[in-house]
């Protein structure tokens, strides 16, 4: 058997493991960007177990930002904190704040419903609603009180074209969405998320339940959305992060370790730990 090399850079990793807050290495290129979402000193605990430690993460407008890191590092929790999905879970303690377009997310008197309407979310498993394709896509508008059929139809077509699904389903918009294939369902969920023109599109491992062909289509879609939408995507697939994102944040044990332009992070990271993770030496 090949002899194991000594785990690299033990000092930083063991500090993280001990729960000590170590400030993230943030690349200077990010200073040139206009930020739409800013996470500031964000801590989150499930009961007595702290999951996120003093996270600071600015998300640039119109760009695709990927969160990578090993399982359990808190990247999904962070994503779900942005649209306050963690409110649905009992026993969650939060300190710190985020701001979306300058408005507080966790401050006093925030209307969570209103806040969520400014964001779209795509989940790990596609979750179309038990209704027609058309009603699925226009769901956000309908619950907002939009009843004008012409408006709804127009939004439906725009969103489905945006999600590269229009050509496949335009002749069966009134059929149940549950009859579509897995890949189509996930693109439908993306169409549903972009139908309300969200300021930020949150994607939680959107391709993990898809086959390679469907994954390719969704990735192409994400590349197409870049520029028009701000995308924050969680992925455990590093090739995917390198293919679709402009910026990447590497998270480990509830903290952001390094955050910078994807090309730079993957080829020339500032920290040895990042390189070790990306090259598969731990995680």
């Amino acid at each position: 058997m090949e002899e194991l090399q000594a785990p690299p850079a033990m000092d930083r990793l063991s500090a993280l493991a001990a729960g000590t807050v170590v400030p993230a290495e943030i690349h200077p290129e990010l200073q040139d960007e206009e930020m739409i979402l800013e996470v500031a000193d964000f801590n989150l605990s499930y009961g007595s177990k702290q999951v996120l430690f003093d996270v600071n993460l600015p998300v640039p407008r119109g760009k695709v930002t990927a969160l990578i890191g090993p399982s359990g590092c808190g990247k999904s929790t962070l994503l779900r904190s942005v649209n306050r999905m963690n409110d649905l879970i009992d026993n969650v303690t939060i300190t710190g704040d985020m701001s979306l377009g300058g408005d507080t997310v966790y401050g006093r008197g925030v209307d969570v419903i209103e806040l969520r309407r400014r964001m779209g979310m795509v989940f790990q498993k596609s979750n179309p609603f038990p209704m027609s394709i058309r009603d699925n896509v226009t769901y956000a508008l309908q619950i907002n009180g939009e009843r004008n059929r012409a408006v709804l139809n127009e939004v439906c077509e725009t969103a489905l074209r945006g999600a590269a699904l229009w050509d496949e389903v335009h002749d069966r918009l009134d059929e149940s969405a549950l009859g579509m294939s897995g890949g189509q369902q996930q693109r439908l969920c993306i169409a549903r998320a972009i139908a309300a023109e969200p300021e930020v599109l949150l994607m939680d491992e959107p391709c993990s339940a898809l086959d390679p062909i469907a994954t390719t289509r969704v990735e192409e879609l994400i590349l197409k959305l870049r520029g028009d939408y701000t995308v924050l995507i969680v992925t455990h697939n590093m090739q995917q992060a390198s293919r679709v994102s402009d910026y990447t944040a590497f998270m480990y044990l509830g903290q952001v370790v390094e955050y910078g332009p994807t090309a730079k992070l993957f080829t020339n990271p500032l920290l040895k730990e990042t390189e070790d993770y990306i090259t598969g030496r731990f995680g």
């Binding site: 649209n83 779209g120 609603f129 209704m131 956000a140 309908q142 619950i143 907002n144």
Partner: peptide, 27 residues
Amino acid sequence: VPSSMREGSFACGATKWQTIQRVVLPR
């Protein structure tokens, strides 16, 4: 009813009752 459906509805900005009425009950 899968909790992912409820979450999907909440993420669209639906209230609890809207979620129950439009997603949970039909399902």
